[in-house]
């Protein structure tokens, strides 16, 4: 049986934030004609090309600037990072290589891909969700870290 963490479950703000993310993807699509896939936008800068750089930096600046803007007005909700530095390095490498090799992440395949009813993105989303669940299961319940 699944035990729901009722004290942590935040359906209202989750839905509201999800709608904002959807509006972000929608505006990027309808204004610029592009998929708001974050790993692809960042990966396209490595290395930067002549005509394809400024909008990528602009998008990433908006993303990184969001918490800064937030902090001008209100206190940021907690960001709890319990992983240690070696773990973060391994995680970063896997996420970096994996998203480029698999052509997308939670935003490009998950949000945008599923929104445009792409089977390819569904396959990708099911793949990373499956290994995500398995990894946490192994770490928290088998190894017990």
């Amino acid at each position: 049986m699944i035990d729901i963490a009722w004290s942590q479950f935040t359906p209202g703000t989750a839905l509201a934030g999800g709608i904002l993310i959807g509006l972000a993807a929608a505006s990027f699509l309808l204004l610029n004609g592009r998929i708001a896939g974050i790993s692809g936008i960042l990966g396209g800068l490595l290395p930067p090309t002549k005509y394809d750089t400024i909008w990528r930096i602009a998008f990433l600046a908006g993303l990184i600037g969001a918490p800064m803007l937030w902090m001008l007005v209100a206190e940021l909700p907690p960001i709890e990072i319990n992983a240690g530095y070696p773990t973060l390095i391994i995680a970063g490498l896997l996420v970096g290589i994996g998203t480029r090799y698999g052509s997308g992440c939670t935003s490009g395949h998950g949000v945008c891909g599923l929104s445009r009813l792409s089977f390819r993105s569904l396959a990708a989303t099911l793949s990373f969700m499956a290994t995500g669940f398995i990894t946490v299961f192994v770490i928290r319940h088998l190894i017990g870290a």
């Binding site: 995680a91 698999g102 396959a123 990708a124």
Partner: peptide, 27 residues
């Protein structure tokens, strides 16, 4: 596509970060 996504999922499960939230937390 599948192998890359599976690798990404492992990294995601290891630290709880995917690219977007990583960049926001950096900001």
């Amino acid at each position: 596509l599948v192998i890359g996504s599976m690798m990404f999922g492992i990294g995601w499960g290891v630290a709880g970060f995917c690219p977007g939230p990583g960049l926001v937390a950096l900001g």
